[in-house]
Design a protein around this nucleic acid. Sequence first.
DNA 1: CGATTGACGTACG
DNA 2: TCGTACGCCAATC
Length: 116
Amino acid sequence: MKKEKNKLDSFFEQVYAVARLVPKGRVTSYGAIGKYLGTAKSARMVGWAMNGAHQVKPKVPAHRVVNRTGLLTGKHHFGTPTRMQELLEKEGIKVKNDQVQDFKKLYWDPMVELSI
DNA sequence: CGATTGACGTACG
DNA sequence: TCGTACGCCAATC
């Protein structure tokens, strides 16, 4: 019946999978996900993948994914520029000036947590 | 079909 | 230490 493409085989779905694994109240970076998938230098693709994360189900917590510096660079893609910060603060993450506070402590590294 | 862009990261000066 | 340049690869113009 539904002959949906094998998106599970797509690089994008792998990004979504890792993003969903991010525990609540923690954040990770595009490069960390890309590196975990073996495309460390293709961090841009991770961000591009998030571009379609909104139409993927279950929804991908893209708000838990920030750049390497902990800056909410993709906040403009959440409908409203403050939506991403609101979601993060709702999970207990403090954000100020689009910058995640204690990012170093909240940083969730798939390479370590998932123990490759 | 070619050039540009983009939610990043690393390298080099 | 800070600023600039380049690479990634797919989507868009």
